[in-house]
Write a protein that binds this DNA or RNA. Structure first.
Lengths: 330, 330
DNA sequence: CTGTTAGCGCCTTCAG
DNA sequence: CTGAAGGCGCTAACAG
């Protein structure tokens, strides 16, 4: 593969002149520049971006780290990140944390391959994040709260969100409200549970034996947990699911058993993913401001890179989206 | 930031010894290695992956290039790519081609930042692909057919797919079948149109004035094109859409005008995206083997990197998925 | 305007 | 087992 050295030799100029010409520096005369560009084309020269990054010691790219590249994407969130990143002339790349400590995500966090990271992957350890974050490598956390210099967390008010949902169910006359969750070690899901429990307490309702936690936060598990509860005859009047994916799994289980939603049981989710409004019945759920969150995350990266001060923590409001999966028992 | 130089100085050894120790080379005695690792930890040393890549002249990472990171992802396809890539010990990163010639995608294609690329982004010019592909940089194309060394195309039999869908509609008694597409410059969509036209011809039906092409291949445009046709009173008996996204937009438009699908008009899509089975009525569409396609793409990258010969072109079969959006007029 | 030069941080023969 | 030395390809002072 041709390098600038080869071009220099062929064009009869020095290496630095080639570099200047290629980078459109005004120092080079038009004539030499053109000769250089011509021989570059002739050799099918391709810049080695890695060498260039090494020299500049800056990559002008930001990484978005997600649990699984093939997973259900928060498309609006990515859009927010993408637009801000591009407007700053930076590049954005996405990588996944499948593989744990040897994952691509860790490689990008710890090997200076990018200038900042936005993390939405609970399986990345806090230790790695703390070790990586520096003035020239800000880390924005979307899935947990961590207090440290050069890392800022942007959370959604999960507790208020599920509190709102529970309160709504109670107002609709539901007294026996189950909560279906996964085996959370994540702060996020603790908060959602807390909101649920608080609402029940405030209304003198019992949440004991109503909280079911097991497995992953995905559709399959929502489905199988619901089937299990149905089999055990534990049919509450309303089911709150930890997120929309699980709720959609639950909806499938109910349908299989000819249990009508919302006539027989009411269902709520959390997140307001795109599918939520398409499933039947359309899912009543809690919306989070996804685009704004993404855009804020990207903004903060640049603020920190530019040396400005930022809040260490943001919490964004949620909103109840009432659709058709909840009935009134009044 | 600490470098191996700093570690060497502090640990009282040479730079190369540090490098060996860090890379688990057996040449270093256990004692020295441990001392080195300890001082590395002490200094919070973080490897500079870029320098390492430059030296090794290999990145062990593959790029997946998509039109828009926030776009509707072929999640199954990504899963196929991801699994093969990880099993080979390579990293996978995704980047978008928004921004055209100055996009992240182009940067990764032309600057040797990765060892291979899988492209699913029609707005990347063929020229760039031809210039980039080399023995040590294979490019797999999922959105077009290009014949060249080190590039292989994996297509889906688009023509057979839409031929199948059209034929099915005809068998159900439809005679007036409209085709709604975007302004395609992409081979993919030409092929879909061709399948449609061929089926009509074979049955002596007229496709003239039945082909509507305009705008993008997204939901919004499917929606607005359908509204326009409704406004013009051009209600065919069946509407074939170029893809599921557009078909879903069409479904929304029909619903707004209280035109019943499939009672009043029949609708088909293409792709079988996840949403297709959730919309009401569930969409009859053409499925492509997404996971297999992704896995094959990744496999081919490694085959080429390992110097093995490959077919220059693959075409994968499609399959009709009959759901509820088509009625029988027989 | 062009050339010389000194690295960026790491890897890897080759000697010892 | 350890150290010295020479780059990978590119950039950016600094001189001319």
């Amino acid at each position: 593969m041709a390098t600038i050295k080869d071009i220099a030799r062929l064009a009869g100029v020095s290496i630095s002149t080639v570099s200047y010409a290629l980078n459109n520096d005004t120092k080079v005369s038009k004539k030499t520049r053109e000769r250089i560009l011509a021989t570059a084309r002739e050799l099918n020269y391709q810049k080695n971006g890695i060498a260039s990054d090494l020299k500049r010691s800056s990559t002008r790219t930001i990484a978005l780290i997600v649990t699984d590249l093939s997973g259900p994407y928060y498309s609006e969130l990515v859009k927010g990140i993408q637009e801000v990143t591009l407007s700053k002339g930076y590049d954005l790349l996405a990588c996944s944390s499948v593989g744990g400590e040897t994952s691509t995500a860790v490689k990008f966090l710890t090997e200076k391959r990018v200038d900042g990271a936005i993390v939405l992957a609970h399986n990345i350890s806090e230790e790695i994040i703390l070790q990586s974050a520096r003035a020239k490598f800000p880390v924005i956390l979307l899935d947990r709260k961590v207090e440290s210099e050069y890392v800022v967390s942007i959370e959604v008010d999960n507790e208020a969100g599920s509190h709102m949902a529970a309160e709504y169910l109670i107002k609709q006359g539901h007294r026996d409200i189950a909560y279906i969750s996964g085996m959370a070690i994540s702060e996020l899901h603790f908060m959602r549970i807390r909101g649920y429990e608080r609402a029940l307490q405030e209304h003198g309702l019992n949440s004991k034996n109503r909280l079911h936690q097991f497995g992953l936060f995905n559709r399959e598990n929502g489905y199988s947990m619901t089937k299990m509860l149905i089999a055990q005859g534990k049919l509450s009047s309303a089911f709150m699911y930890a997120n929309d994916e699980m709720a959609i799994g639950g909806l499938m289980a109910f349908k299989e058993h000819s249990i009508k939603v919302p006539q027989d049981v009411s269902v709520t989710g959390f997140d307001d993913i795109e599918l939520a409004k398409y499933v039947r019945p359309a899912l009543t759920t809690v919306l989070q401001p996804k685009y704004e969150r993404g855009a804020l995350a990207a903004h903060l990266i640049f603020q920190i890179l530019e040396g400005q001060d930022t809040e260490p923590y943001y919490i964004l409001p949620t909103q109840l989206v009432m659709r058709d999966s909840v009935s009134s028992k009044a």
